[in-house]
Nucleic acid binder design. Structure first.
Length: 611
DNA sequence: TCGGTGACTTAGAAGTCGACTC
DNA sequence: GAGTCGACTTCTAAGTCACCGA
């Protein structure tokens, strides 16, 4: 079977010197002239153009584009009141709400079955903002959150959702077509003469803020965004997108040193939010490529850097020792840099912001010496727990850093991310703390693939090897997920399937031996039957093996998220090369989105590529 | 030097879709 | 044809890091 890799390569060859190739949904499509004849290579769904930027000259520093034109963002649909029979109750009695108050109530009602609604902070924050949306009359009545009843509204939205699911094929098709039309109009922009996909062309709709972990602002109301909140960025000579009916944009600017198309300030945290390009775009792809090239440059100096920081564990200066130990953790454990955070954000930490209570020192633990136990909330409040055996000198240093300190004190009191990155810049141009994560992730994938791939194995076996290598990276980077709903059930189903397959094999085997015996007695018919059974048996055994591999893979993956590392940390050229070398179709490793994002890698890497 | 801000990447959860099974 | 379930896609929060001005 022709893989997408070779198909896409074929498409590119057909284009000769043109610097775009067309990607139609799943397959690469080229309509090119060969010997005067129009030749068509398979097509599917929506068309996008992808620039072969990796074959073009890089632009001078700072400037991101020359021309940029787009239609502006899509606004959230206006609020539609719930039917009159769907009521909000206060203190057991139905209460008619003004439009704004009702909308706020629906934000909460829609989340009624969510864990968030059991949290005090969430409820308090919501109620405070809910009251802000009320008329003075409503404010006088609605004073106690515990007396609010959103149940009828919740039931209404549940029923609406059921209705949507139960819609007829035709109704669903109409909806799909509407969405596609919207995407066609607003989902693309023209940048430097090329049509490129926009990543998020819709403005965030109003609702309740869902901060992760123990976020002090969870439950606050995210306001509706109007044109007057939105800044537009487009080319000087381009057509400025028209703001919706009679309104005005906050600002129209023509800044070609940035990549965003529109921005606004979100009211809960006061952060700037952006409309940006899709990962398949030239701008994002180039950046991604540079990221992996920087990580590869690190490979050339890593030995020296490691030798230096080990040496610095003995430094007379506390500042230098702390920096060296922190760098060791960033390198060995792939910890994040750990910027300082404000009081009004969830309390999470990274390497530089580790506090005394996040590490425990054990001279001996479970038969290992000099063990550091890390236990802290990391990004997204995901717990990082790791028992690590460290060099004696690191251990001694940690004891020193923790001397006379109490819980709440910084472990590295002479260090922050800025200081660390300034130091890293001196070691290598473009080096920052996060480069180590990219470097160690990609390096791990490469070495694990070398270790785990058996060239003579079947494709499913090779895939298990790939997933295990990917898993090693996900574990290193602490990419976790909650156990998927119905995991137990799906494992049970798989086990049942496996059992059924084993039974079938037993039956088939018995019949096979019977036929064989009969065939030995000289019956031609029985010999044919024996051959047939033998083939069936082989097939069944293959199927069983596939199922067993699937079982192992799924269970090992229960709490580990592979996607994050694949998308952000693993040099895609490693995977492309591995596929090419091992005869594994690329679509087994990268789904459609990943293939479009990493098209550059598909073109760049041959089977000998090494990270 | 420090704090604030802006731009961009990285992250898991939620929502949607479509393949498979009965 | 309906229901189920996993894969894919979208959404948006939460990081990193550079830059700027006081």
């Amino acid at each position: 079977m022709t893989s997408v890799v070779s198909r896409s390569l074929a498409a590119v060859r057909l284009f000769g010197n043109r610097s775009v190739c067309l990607v139609f949904g799943e397959q690469i499509v080229a309509i090119a002239t060969v010997a005067g004849k129009k030749r068509r290579v398979r097509r599917k769904s929506v068309q996008e153009e992808q620039i072969r930027w990796w074959e073009e000259e890089k632009r001078a520093d700072g400037v991101k584009w020359s021309t940029l034109e787009h239609k502006g963002p899509v606004f959230a649909p206006p609020y539609e009141r719930v039917p009159r029979n769907v009521r909000f109750y206060y203190d057991g009695k139905p209460l008619e709400l003004s439009e704004e108050t009702e909308e706020a109530a629906t934000f909460y009602a829609k989340m009624l079955n969510h864990d968030y609604c059991t949290k005090e902070v969430f409820n308090n924050n919501f109620f405070k903002d809910f009251r802000k949306s009320m008329t003075s009359k409503e404010k006088e009545i609605i004073k106690d959150f515990r007396k609010c009843n959103f149940q009828e509204m919740f039931n209404f939205f549940q029923a609406e959702s059921e209705k949507r699911k139960a819609a007829t094929k035709e109704e669903k098709l109409v909806k799909k077509n509407e969405n596609e039309a919207l995407m066609k109009e607003y989902g693309f922009c023209m940048i430097d003469g090329h049509k490129e996909k926009i990543g998020n062309f819709r403005l965030e709709p109003p609702g309740l803020f869902r901060g992760r972990g123990e976020h002090p602002k969870m439950g606050m109301i995210k306001r509706r965004i109007h044109a007057s909140d939105v800044s537009i960025n487009c080319g000087k000579d381009s057509k400025v997108p028209p703001p919706p009916g009679g309104s005005r944009w906050k600002e129209v600017r023509h800044d070609n040193t940035v990549t965003w198309l529109a921005s606004w300030i979100e009211n809960v945290q006061g952060q700037v939010k952006y409309i940006m390009l899709n990962p398949s775009s030239k701008l994002k792809g180039e950046k991604d490529h540079i990221k992996y090239e920087t990580a590869r440059r690190l490979d050339k100096v890593i030995d020296k850097i490691r030798a230096t920081y080990r040496d610095e564990w003995k430094s007379k200066e506390m500042r230098v020792r702390q920096r060296a130990v922190a760098l060791y953790f960033i390198d060995k454990l792939a910890l994040r840099a750990g910027n300082e955070k404000d009081e009004d954000q969830a309390d999470t930490v990274g390497c530089c912001s580790l506090r005394v209570e996040h590490v425990q020192l054990h001279k001996e633990l479970n038969g290992k010496e000099n063990v550091v136990v890390f236990d802290f909330p990391g990004k997204d409040s995901i717990r990082y727990y790791n028992e690590v055996e460290v060099e004696k000198r690191v251990f001694k240093n940690l004891e020193l850093f923790m001397e006379h300190k109490k819980d709440g004190d910084d472990l590295f009191d002479r260090l922050n991310t800025q200081v660390l990155n300034e130091h890293l810049k001196e070691l290598m141009d473009g080096l920052t703390a996060k480069v180590f994560r990219t470097y160690n992730a990609s390096k791990t994938l490469q070495s694990q693939l070398d270790l785990l791939t058996d060239p003579s194995a079947t494709v499913p076996e090779k895939l298990l090897a790939y997933n295990r290598a990917n898993r090693a990276v996900a574990i290193l980077c602490n990419h976790q997920r909650s156990v998927p709903k119905g995991h137990e059930k799906s494992m049970e189903n798989l086990k049942e399937k496996i059992k059924a397959k084993r039974d079938a094999i037993d039956d088939c085997e018995a019949e096979y031996h019977d036929f064989k015996k009969a065939a030995k007695r000289g019956s031609v018919k029985e010999k044919v039957n024996a051959d047939k059974k033998g083939k069936q048996l082989e097939r069944l055994k293959d199927q069983l093996k596939k199922l067993e591999l699937q079982e192992t893979d799924r269970d090992e993956n229960k709490t580990i998220a592979l996607g994050t590392s694949k998308l952000n940390y693993l040099d895609p050229r490693i995977s492309v090369a591995w596929c090419k070398k091992n005869g594994v179709p690329i679509e087994k490793i990268f789904n459609k989105t990943q293939r479009t994002k990493f098209l550059w890698a598909v073109h760049m890497a041959d089977e000998d590529y090494r990270f």
